[in-house]
Design a protein around this nucleic acid. Sequence first.
RNA 1: GCCGAAGUGGCGGAACAGGCAGACGCGCACGACUCAAAAUCGUGUUCCUUCGGGAUUGAGGGUUCGAUUCCCUCCUUCGGCACCA
Length: 879
Amino acid sequence: MKPKKIAAAKARKTTKAVSSKSKAAKKITAKKPAARKVAAKQVKAQAPTAKNIAYDPQIIEKKWQAKWEADKLYRAVIDERKPKHYALTMLPYPSGDLHIGHWYAMTPSDARARFKRMQGYNVLFPMGFDAFGLPAENAAIRDGIHPMKRTYQNIERMRKQLKSMGAMFDWSREVVSSDPEFYRWTQWFFIQLYKAGLAYRKMAAVDWCPKDNTTLAREQVIGENRVCERCGTPVIKKDLEQWFFKTTKYADELLRFDELDWPQTVKTLQTNWIGRSEGASVHFKTEAGEDIEIFTTRPDTLWGATFMVFAPEHPLVDKVTTPEQKAAVEAYKAQAARQSDIEREAADKEKTGVFTGGYAINPVNDERIPIWIADYVLLSYGTGAIMAVPAHDERDFAFARKYDLPIVPVIQPEGVTLDGATMERAHEHEGVMINSGPFNGTRATDEKGMANPAIKAVVEWLEQKGIGRRAVNYRYRDWLISRQRYWGAPIPMVYCEKHGWNPVPDDQLPVLLPEDVEWKPTGESPLKLHPTWKNTACPECGEPAVRETDTMDTFMCSSWYHLRYLSPHYNKGPFDEKEYNYWMPVDTYTGGIEHATMHLLYTRFFHKALRDMGITEGNEPMIQLRNQGMVLAEDNSKMSKSRGNVVAPDRLVEKYGADTVRAYLMFFARWEMGAPWDSQGIEGSARWIRRTWILFTDPSTTLRSAQDEPIAATDETKKNLRRKVHQTLRKVTRDFENFEFNTIISSLMELMNEMYKAREAGAVGTPEWNEATEIYLKMLAPVAPHIAEELWTHQMGKPYSIHQQTWPKYDEEAAKEDTIEIPVQVNGKVRDRIVVAADASEKAIEATALASPTVQKFLEGRPPKKVIVAQKRLVSVVV
RNA sequence: GCCGAAGUGGCGGAACAGGCAGACGCGCACGACUCAAAAUCGUGUUCCUUCGGGAUUGAGGGUUCGAUUCCCUCCUUCGGCACCA
């Protein structure tokens, strides 16, 4: 049993009695059971008094939301006298209803933005809607409701729900990505990227339903046999000319994170996603007369390349295939094409392949090597063809053993002699080069790329000889922008027979989506089917030309929306430079980890590309990033409509009020981790908010301070209260900085419990009490903005608004303890606790510890071998 | 398979920088109030115990006077990538 606990318990015991204002009530602080009973009865008889108002969040929350809005309290306006803070949280897709996950992402972000504001920053905290996208279009196909209508209805509904959070969103800066005044600039950016040479067209495969005659998104392809979601027809791959952005041009820069305060996990995810590997590009001749470049990370093993493997779809396959092998090759190609991606990518799948009959020449030793095709070589990576070095690559080894191809070791590990005929696995590690002509004896390490002396030597030699060069390859692909959809920003390009593709002139932007469109049940793009929309004039010659009927990936909108918030209605450019110069970059960006690779990489790419065009400044758009976790359903599963286990924030707000919901979301889990929802758990937060209300409104507080009664509190009580206040302030300040919301709430709960205790001890009306109430409410303000405002402005009569107050500074001196309790260990076990003055010397602490009878008992008369006094935290005695 | 994150009471979690494990809250038990219930308030709540104490932060080892924290091996869960040449 800890002394702390006893004290707290005592405080709680007397709370009830104190709700009386009578003189008798004062007596009962001496806590005789009989007296308490009397007091409680009196309370009942008096209640409700005018002063003893019940907590009604429905009334106060609506009241303050209306007033804040009317007063434009959260308008963010450039103010050069103040440091700026651009806090951004990812904008929602208007799906219809706000989800508890939105609340979980947004309300702690809001609390932190509010904290920053109270710290003196000029804070911009905007909100908007990522309004284009597939769900609205699907609904249109299903129900015949126009996506525009549905989207804007949803936005209206969700805007209202968002406002019920009591967040400090500056709604005057709201953006909706499907508004023409927004997508005009999305289109403008496309054109800028096009003009900068970063947009190009190429053929790319899409998943296609041959029956519905339409492209399918990944989630519209169902099951292992990959059928169309609508009609069950097996999906095929279809090649279409599509628009791409050259994101890979920035791959190397995107791998640099030195200006970013981002979670390590996100940086790792992006690094893996980009998948940079260093090596060499090597030129091979084939006997069919066509040359081929291959990429390898191990040019040091070139002398061990005993065959080549092409991807079955590789365009050169037909050229190198001999007539005798043609049938086998065709058969293999056909079965590879039939396989789903999933089957093909199964890791444990046995290697298969077919000899083409063709040969290539290994350029380093002029050996004639056979060309095979196999589905373990992917057309999408590297050049779609590899040199196979079975002695030093597991996959090539398995393939060579299966088809009885030669294995020649060229890297000899220390103390072992590798023999191609008998070795049981590939040797993928360090050793000394052998069988490698001029390089025999060169040391190959486990280092990758040019850091490996063997690779470096060979690459330099290849370059000299003109048969290869240093090369870097990426897993990362260029960004495919085209979507064969209606509900997106039209790609502002026009095709003319004579002049090819040209951008729509600026003065004709935006290219508006036609509203008079119809949906076929198949999902074919209405833009393609529209009778007149695509007809236009060539910007070059004025002759009849056609518009691009594809629209843009919605990631395009989210790549720059943070810039539109700067000046949502500005019409001379995508943003007002003045606003940009003041607010950018985004200081704090919050959102889900699921956007780690796509959205966040696209946004960084976009910013860098714009920087190089002189449109933006700085290298990064968002300096600090934090990810929240996920709120799971009570049974630990994911929440989903189909499972019927979603938690509706609207109903929680009705039942508990927004302040309680906010507090619980901050309290119930580590923010970055998330946790299952607990419908009982929220009662605890509701209780805390209610007890806060009672602490400030109960007659035992309000009347006591009004009556100027003599102060009963001892100096010690007052000092303890002040200490707790400043300790809490120190902790809450630090926790806000670090996004540790759960411990902010628990610290505030502790302080509140302490304040109840202090009230019992007669502290109401003292300067310490008044300071405690002020600081408590200021710390509460970012968490529970409504109740804090009500208690501050209305109940205590302090100047409106609490949200314009400055964050208090903690007093280090006041937070200091007078005495400290130090545990004493004997042989590593805690045996006693001693109380010493906070400024006691180590010597004094040691003496006190050794003098303790308990410690003496455990010493059993033995002299201590060693006594360690650890910085006023612990004494460790070793015998 | 590779990369990353995380494993602490019945539950969510706390523990600044190697120094009292379990703050704060939920739940539960008992009690007060109540005709009763809800609400509220109070007390207790890691496990074992011969009441001396012992064990305990996924498991096992190591470093240290001292490890939830650092190192090694392993297990489990989650996330990412997945034949990447």
